[in-house]
């Protein structure tokens, strides 16, 4: 009866070793998610491509109507680098204030996710790594999106999705930046 128990212990020990050793190794090299995504050269390209795709996406483009795209790109590059444990300190506004009044809905949030996925595919970032990154971005949804208590007023009876964009017109402060820093 002892033999199976010892075997089980040995098996358990070797499993524990084989599980912990690679972890320790990766701890030493300190590979961050940002590194796994390809680091700065890849991620700068990913963010630039994502915004290009978003601007060309009919579901998305109106969101950026009043945005300074160059500035926005820089901010998103720094912010995403920070989120992925890269060597960047994001000192921009908090997300809720930065997106206040832009009329961003879940549709827009998810569309940008799809644009990002496409951009990451184009850089051959592995699916698993993509999802580790998306998992860090996902909780932003509640801060970035707006939820009005009543259906948005709309001149077009065509689509809920268009509504928040048309609503932006008269209501919006023309100075509202897209993702402002102090």
């Amino acid at each position: 009866m002892m033999k199976p128990a010892i075997q089980a212990l040995l098996l358990g020990a070797s499993l524990t070793l084989s599980l912990t050793l690679p972890l320790q190794a990766s701890d030493k090299t300190k590979s961050t998610l940002y590194d796994d995504l390809g680091g700065k050269p890849v991620m700068d390209k990913v963010i630039a491509d994502m915004l290009d795709l978003a601007l060309a996406d009919p579901r998305m483009a109106p969101i950026f109507v009043d945005s300074d795209m160059e500035r926005l790109e820089k901010l998103i590059i720094i912010h995403t680098c920070h989120i992925a444990d890269g060597p960047c300190d994001y000192d921009g506004q908090d997300m809720r204030r930065a997106h206040d009044g832009l009329g961003i809905r879940t549709l827009h949030f998810n569309t940008l996710v799809e644009n990002l996925q496409q951009a990451m595919d184009d850089q051959d970032i592995p699916f698993r790594t993509q999802n580790r990154f998306l998992a860090r971005l996902a909780p932003m949804h509640d801060d970035v999106t707006e939820r009005s208590p009543v259906p948005p007023r709309t001149t077009k009876a065509d689509s809920y999705s268009v509504a928040p964009i048309t609503r932006m017109g008269p209501d919006q402060d023309p100075e509202t930046p897209s993702e402002a820093s102090p």
Partner: peptide
């Protein structure tokens, strides 16, 4: 009634 937005992933 608007058309569906297919707004989820």
């Amino acid at each position: 009634l608007p058309s569906p937005d297919k707004g989820r992933l």
